[in-house]
Amino acid sequence: MNNRITSLFGIEYPIIQAGMIWASGWRLASAVSNAGGLGILGAGSMYPHILREHIQKCKAATDKPFGVNLPLLYPDIDQHVKIIREEGVKIVFTSAGNPKTWTPVLKAAGITVVHVVSSSKFALKSQEAGVDAVVAEGFEAGGHNGREETTTMVLIPAVRDAVTIPLIAAGGIADGRAMAAAFALGAEGVQVGSRFVATPEASSHLHFKEAVLKAQEGDTLLSLKKLAPVRLLRNAFYDAVREAEAGGASAEAMQSLLGRGRAKKGMFEGELEEGELEIGQVSALIKEITPAADVVKEIWDGFNATRARLAGL
């Protein structure tokens, strides 16, 4: 396919792997890029020197384009940007912050900038900030989520009507059927997160991957709304959060309950009860651990099969 997304990134398929914390290291990013999609390193769980190491290893593992996901609220953001520029990274996806702050800096270095949004309002602000494209991420998505709680089915056409720049859909997309639906709503590419967690190349712990495979409908819920809303898989930690929220706990109390390193404990170290397990609603549709290249192919083949089926109606 040749469209604005494939042209913008220089990739074969408009399929982007999300830059998820504790899952998106160089092995996953390079595998997706080598398969024709766009692999993304998740800098949100990396110290600056670790990010540099993953960039260098990704460059050694693929000669295809790849990018870095950069949460703008990260405390070492200036060091991350410095490393990204020094290592010659050409694509950056920013999130969790104001795109006006760093977009000019990144663009001045010749970097293609994409910002993740949860509303048409923020999509328009991103366009005004000069980003090259936006990812519109619906309420179904895993991890940190928008307070608007707008579903992908509503969000994508709303953003498409609001902006003229290229649009990537995210949230609840794990196969070709969902990709075709996103394109019908106005997207020109898709960003896939949860499905790539269940791959051998993802750096997340095997116990977490196996928990994803066991997830059923309703097993993920949005929580920690007094801090930053995040979609979590049900476990003992989630139950403690739910009890605290029902009791009217303050933001300070919720922060104390969350503590430090809980996401690492759950997703990277495999502590399934006391860890924070971030995954999307679409985990209910994921039934096996599959190599990343096969995931790209399955999504692309499913997308074309769905297009053919719809054309015959």
Rank of each mutant, 00 (worst) to 15 (best):
L167Y: 03
P166M: 11
P166L: 08
S194K: 05
I173Q: 07
A170S: 15
L167A: 03
G189P: 11
G172C: 13
A187C: 12
V163T: 02
R177M: 10
V197T: 14
G193T: 13
V197Y: 11
P166A: 11
A187S: 14
G193C: 14
T199M: 07
L185S: 11
G186K: 13
A169H: 02
A170I: 05
A174E: 07
V190T: 10
R195T: 09
V163L: 07
I173N: 06
Q191H: 14
R177P: 03
G189I: 05
G186L: 13
T199R: 03
A198G: 13
G186R: 14
A181R: 00
V197A: 12
F183G: 00
V190M: 05
R177D: 04
A178V: 00
G189H: 08
F196H: 09
A178T: 12
I173D: 01
A187W: 05
A198L: 10
L185T: 09
P166I: 06
A181F: 05
V192N: 05
S194Q: 11
R195Y: 10
V197E: 00
G186E: 12
A170E: 03
F196I: 11
M179Q: 08
V163E: 06
I173S: 01
I165T: 12
D175L: 06
S194Y: 03
A182E: 09
G186I: 15
M179H: 07
Q191D: 12
G186C: 15
G176C: 09
E188V: 13
A180I: 02
I168V: 15
R177E: 10
G172E: 04
A180G: 04
R177T: 13
A181Y: 09
I168A: 03
E188R: 12
A170R: 02
V197C: 11
V197D: 07
G171Q: 02
R195G: 07
G186H: 14
Q191N: 15
V163H: 07
A169S: 03
A180M: 13
F183E: 01
A184C: 15
I165C: 08
T199N: 05
V197S: 06
I168C: 12
F183W: 04
F183N: 02
L167S: 01
V190Y: 08
R195Q: 13
G189Y: 05
F183L: 11
